[in-house]
Computed example of a mutant assay.
Amino acid sequence: MNFTTQDSSALYGLLAESASDVILKTDLGGFILHASQALERLGFRTADRQSPPCLLDLVSPESRDEVQRAYADALSGAGPGHPVEFPALTTDQRQRWFEIQTRALKNESGEPCGALSILRNVDERRRLEQQLFAATYTDPLTKLTNRAAFVSMLEHMVDKEMDGCLALFSIDFFRTINMQYGQSTGDDVLVVFANLLREMLRSEDIISRIGSERFAVLLPRATPEQAEAICSRVIATLAELRQKVGESRFAITASASVARIADNLDSTLERAEMALFVAKAKGRNRLEMEKALQKVRH
């Protein structure tokens, strides 16, 4: 189809006024010369301003440098014109996320004279991404992070050489509980233990369910002695309580181990797993430290 200048102008007007996306025309300094009506529908107010607003006036301070670089790249032709996401400053006091993509406008001499940008609300997409992230890295039963998230976090701590310890917990005789009371009661046991860990561990500790009846805890900046004291309290408290689970009330115990986060991921896991094996071999309902730090218990 061939459009005259008037046709193109009319078509632009129709698209600009009906779309939920915002179309912005800005000068070389980033000041907004024209904005489609969707700008106000998305919570921005520009009509009562004494001077033209700047594009960066729409952007939260922490993202202004990134948006400014993308805008400068678009004007110079150096950037690929990729979208940039940023939290916006809207007049309704709601935090909203937007994506902006910019292309340079050039005069008859081929020199940049401004830019056209499309501003798109991406709140819904970010919510969906967060839900997908939660589904990927969260255990649906206990709402703790799962094994995939645990491995990633432990690997990060190892790579950054962060001080701390890894604790492993395993509910004792869990298969017997499932067989005697049923799987729904077994699920309740897992939830009860997960909640106990949340209550008794420090706010900075990261708790994950990494297997059927197995839990892992990352204790940042904790020394082996501190980790031993923290985890010993969990084991002792659990054994002292007769938990109400479903229609039954019975004692739940767990075995545990502690290893320093050091060397590499495999070494850290191996040392913690070996200490957990020792705890179970010695009768369960106890905590064992990794071999290098193991203490004599009376």
Rank of each mutant, 00 (worst) to 15 (best):
F3W: 15
D7S: 05
L24D: 03
L28G: 09
L33D: 11
A35T: 12
L42I: 04
G43F: 00
L55C: 07
S60L: 13
V67N: 02
V67P: 00
A70L: 02
L75F: 00
T90Y: 06
D92G: 08
E99S: 15
G110P: 08
A115C: 08
R126H: 11
R126Q: 14
R127H: 14
R127W: 02
D139P: 02
L141H: 08
L154I: 04
A167H: 01
S170G: 15
S170P: 04
I171P: 03
T176P: 03
T176H: 14
N178T: 14
G182R: 10
S184R: 15
T185A: 12
G186C: 05
V191E: 02
V192G: 03
R202Q: 11
R209Q: 12
S212D: 12
E213T: 09
A222D: 06
A227Y: 05
E228Q: 15
I230P: 01
C231N: 08
L241Q: 14
Q243T: 07
G246S: 14
E247H: 14
A251F: 10
S255K: 04
A256V: 06
R260L: 10
T268D: 09
E270K: 13
E273M: 14
A275H: 02
L276I: 02
A279R: 00
G283N: 13
G283R: 10
E288D: 05
M289V: 07
E290L: 02
A292T: 15
R297D: 12
